[in-house]
Design a protein around this nucleic acid. Structure first.
Lengths: 178, 178
DNA sequence: TATTGTTATACTCTATAACTATA
DNA sequence: TATAGTTATAGAGTATAACAATA
């Protein structure tokens, strides 16, 4: 544990301007106009803080990639296919924790845009070997340049060591729950 | 910047087992059975790493709170009402970045369960002053105990200083994108 | 029997527009 | 004219069940 406990929650739980027993029906504006809203110990919950950061980062990523029409999940799929040419949909599904069923539409779209291809596997006729097209690799390089621009913006408040540390800490959290 | 660059991306872009020019139609199993799938530089993107951590944390939170039927957003709403008795729905909406329209159903549910109440505001008859009921405060204390249990699990891979550091780094990232 | 890709479907979250009543 | 709460609705993203083909 670390800094959060029932005791500290109690302490942080400030009773504002004498408001008491609202359940009994007392009304009245409990706060003066313009007062800032306190999030309290919510900002001490890793889940909340991670969520807010994730939303801010994705918002910037989506805006950055909007001109090339690539969503976060599509970008991750393209990278994993590029790094593992010939992998199957089931393997891709497991690697990215995307349900097999939900990959179908994504791959249809990537094929439609001539970025990726399903190739019949000769060894196992149930599965498809996934590849980027030559065009897909070319486009992925362009996507990278934009994604890097986003990455710089997303981590501009951190120095290189802090950025690395953040990735490490988050990785440990995810693995420990995995 | 910090450790990620077009150059490093190039370097990491390994061409596995001689696979080349998949766009031209070459098939064949590009990977031996049982090979691990490489995520490559995906794990160097703060967006991807934050997203995976957030999913793992929320999964544990949702499972932990399932017996008391509280979702992450509901928990955050209860905390902010508790910390700011009498605040309006619009204020709550802004504080948590939840759209006004999407708060309506949530508050209906919390009222139905006798955890929170909308009280007519005398000063501005358009708005509602939000309060926890006495029961709501009692229940929130129970929710806290479970949430703390979750928090311990989610950050068990970190020491207290690392946990604090993680919250700080994420806060800076979110604020810098704000 | 188990697995692969697929379809159909549902549920949650989130986003927008429009309405009403107030300010 | 703008804001608060509400309704209705649409779009993502994600989840499950079931099926045909194949292992």
């Amino acid at each position: 544990m670390s800094g959060i406990s029932p005791r500290s929650v109690q302490r942080q739980h400030a009773r504002r301007n004498g408001e008491e027993g609202a359940g009994s029906g007392r009304a009245g504006p409990a706060r003066a106009r313009g007062d800032r809203i306190a999030l309290g110990y919510l900002t001490d919950h890793v889940g909340y803080v991670v969520r807010r950061a994730q939303l801010a980062i994705f918002k910037d990523f989506i805006e950055t990639m909007e001109p090339v029409a690539i969503r976060p999940a599509q970008y991750s799929v393209l990278i994993v296919i590029d790094q593992n040419p010939g992998l199957t949909q089931a393997e891709l599904s497991r690697a990215l924790a995307i349900k097999r069923a939900n990959l179908v539409g994504m791959l249809n779209e990537l094929e439609r845009r001539k970025l990726a291809r399903r190739v019949a596997s000769p060894s196992d006729r149930r599965s498809h070997a996934l590849h980027l097209t030559a065009n897909g690799r070319r486009m992925l390089a362009r996507f990278h340049r934009r994604a890097l621009e986003h990455e710089r913006r997303a981590t501009r408040a951190l120095d290189p060591g802090e950025r690395r540390l953040l990735l490490d800490l988050l990785g440990r959290v995810a693995r420990s729950l995995g």
